[in-house]
Amino acid sequence: MQSVPDPIIVEILSYLPISEIIRAESICKKIKSCVEKHSYVLYSRVLSRFSQESISYSHWKNVIKQMNSPSKELQFLPYYTNGGTYYGSNTYYIHNLVLEGYYCYCTVYPTNILVKYALLGTDYDTDRIRARQYISSGVNEGNDRIYFEKEILRESQEFTSQASIYAVIKQIYARAPQGGYTCPIFHFMCFSSIEEDADLGIIDRFNGVSTIDKAKEISDQLGLEYEEVSANSIRQLVFNNCNLPMQPLCWAEMSEDYNQSALNLPLKSKKLARYFYGLLIDGRRTNNYDNNIDISLLLPKGSIIHF
């Protein structure tokens, strides 16, 4: 290693994931010195995604530490749905998607429902979220196709941009209702973006995609890279990072098995995000009368980065 010139060491390290570059620093002084001298080059591919031009080496190390901290639920709050709310009731409101409990988000419409979430960045305050449920119940959005809670969005945007906060999404957690609901979630997809105005066109392409083969076909047409994984004994897709502002995260199928109503899907690559999107493709109909979608939880897990 001592005989390898510094520029070559930097080039070798540039092929490693960031966490392994940090690990490599501990091998010997020569590598550590190379990383310190050329940290901007080594980390540029990540820095550009944070819209950061340059940060100090020690600050960067702290960011890396945050990126690799253990996964926990991320503070994303749903603020939009085009699927309506069953009976217009706050009992079935979209905020249930991030709250543990018996109640679900129950839609009015049966397919291709887009739910948008914004990163709040503070620790979960479930009372505050529940309080919002009551505020929102004052708005009869059940029969409206589009509901948009501007206040939550504005608040989260002010907070995340002032504090320069990003989420690093590492896994997706979803749960179907375990009983008492007639149309449990069957297929869904997740996406993320850093900007709020990311093009939703890519999401629309997956409307109605209820088989893994069809999901692969559309992904191939769009040039998306993905991997097939197994979760709950069902084939699922997780997507690699792509160059689009709107990043697909996963395509998933929920199990019919009552004991496998929860799905924990680790992603192959970490995704930076301030916005999270759930495309609820369809539900599993259990009778001939109800035709909508019921879902208990849909949320990303990962870590938060403060610049």
Binding site: I8, E11, I12, L13, S14, Y15, L16, E20, R23, A24, S26, I27
Partner: peptide
């Protein structure tokens, strides 16, 4: 680049 990637492979996933 091929050589650098090969050497990076020798580092990847190995303990210090």
């Amino acid at each position: 680049d091929l050589c650098c990637a090969k050497m990076a492979c020798k580092f990847k996933g190995r303990s210090i």
